[in-house]
């Protein structure tokens, strides 16, 4: 089995999907000749031609608006938003159009669409190249929000998103692109959207997280193990839909829950997960639910000490988990 980076896994999945289904088209800013600013689509235009992998004008609302029209008319578009921070001009199209078209047409129309966007910080991207925007979309019925945490999951979740009949936002953590590597099978496989994955089994505390933070949590778990604390790690893989069953199972199993996300604390998906556990598993808990999240500042600053202070790290997770275990 080939070892691939997170980025390579996404690119090879796009290639495999483009080969498999002639209805798939990819477009966005710089995705053609340049292969994307992160090179995710490198070589794809050469292989599949300008009709299927094309540069679009620099206008996010048009990218998503046209993708909706194309999806309705028989294509399976995978538009790229260059940075998740730039998705907001298209939010009306995503929230009011893509998400509502099936519902408002009483099932007559559907929008099979995958919107890819790099997100997250720790790459010196400052306020407008670092944001975690997933929760804006997780609030919206009609959308699905997928955030892979490993190269293996990146492939299976992307293929599942392409197969999905509804609009899926597929967020890729920029810091994961080249830092995460792992085995990725060559053959096509689907990871059902909405199924969480137990990345590590443990008995003392549960760490519920997603995306790059899964990797950081796994590192934290190794450190905790040395201290005699056994941490279980649940990778959500999608934050809409949430895998409620697995969330409750791990909460009931360990009785201590730490939720970790890079997204801001207030209104982050951690609040929703906490509410679910409080509603359905309160009396199985041995400690208050704890959230470790990005601070409530508008976005991530540029200067290295400020950026570092914002970011969630393995050390911060270890510390929070240790505190919780002691409770």
């Amino acid at each position: 089995m080939a070892v691939m980076s997170y980025l390579e896994a996404i690119r090879e999945t796009l290639r495999q999907e483009l080969r498999r289904d002639s209805r798939i088209i990819i477009y966005g800013e710089d995705v053609g000749v340049r292969g994307g600013v992160f090179r995710v689509t490198e070589g794809l235009q050469k292989e599949f031609g300008e009709d299927r992998v094309m540069d679009s004008p620099l206008a996010e609302a048009a990218i998503i608006g046209t993708a909706i029209g194309a999806a309705v008319n028989g294509l399976r578009p995978i538009p790229e938003i260059q940075f998740a921070d730039f998705i907001f001009p298209a939010i009306n199209q995503i929230v009011q159009e893509a998400a509502r078209i099936r519902y408002r047409s009483n099932g007559d129309f559907g929008v099979p669409l995958v919107i890819r966007a790099p997100f997250g910080g720790g790459v010196h991207g400052a306020l407008y190249h670092s944001q975690s925007v997933e929760v804006f979309f997780a609030h919206v019925p009609g959308l699905k929000v997928v955030i892979p945490g490993t190269p293996y999951d990146a492939k299976g979740l992307l293929a599942a998103a392409v197969e999905d009949e509804d609009p899926v936002l597929y967020f890729e953590h920029k810091a994961a692109y080249r830092s995460l590597k792992g085995e990725v099978p060559e053959e096509r496989y689907l990871i059902p959207i909405g199924k969480a994955d137990l990345k590590r089994s443990g008995k003392d505390i549960s760490i519920i997280t997603y995306g790059l933070m899964v990797n950081y949590a796994l590192k934290a778990a190794e450190a905790l193990e040395k201290e005699g604390i056994s941490a279980e790690i649940l990778d959500l893989r999608s934050i809409r839909p949430l895998d409620v069953q697995m969330i409750l199972e791990t909460a009931k199993k360990t009785g201590k829950v730490l939720i970790v996300h890079e997204d801001n604390l207030t209104g982050g998906i951690g609040g929703e997960i906490s509410a679910l556990i409080a509603e359905h598993a309160l009396f199985d808990l041995d400690a208050p639910i704890r959230r470790l999240a990005g601070p409530d500042v508008p976005a991530m600053p540029y200067s290295p000490p400020l950026e570092h202070a914002f970011m969630i790290t393995s050390d911060k997770i270890t510390e929070a988990a240790r505190d919780l275990a002691k409770f």
Binding site: A67, I68, A70, N73, L75, Q96, R100
Partner: peptide
């Protein structure tokens, strides 16, 4: 006839997308 919403002008980019699909297909 493509379903439409109340926020105005979103249908024009949809139309361009429908036309894009005609061209690509």
């Amino acid at each position: 006839i493509l379903t439409g919403s109340s926020p105005v002008t979103t249908q024009v980019t949809h139309a361009a997308g429908l036309a894009l699909a005609m061209k690509v297909r």
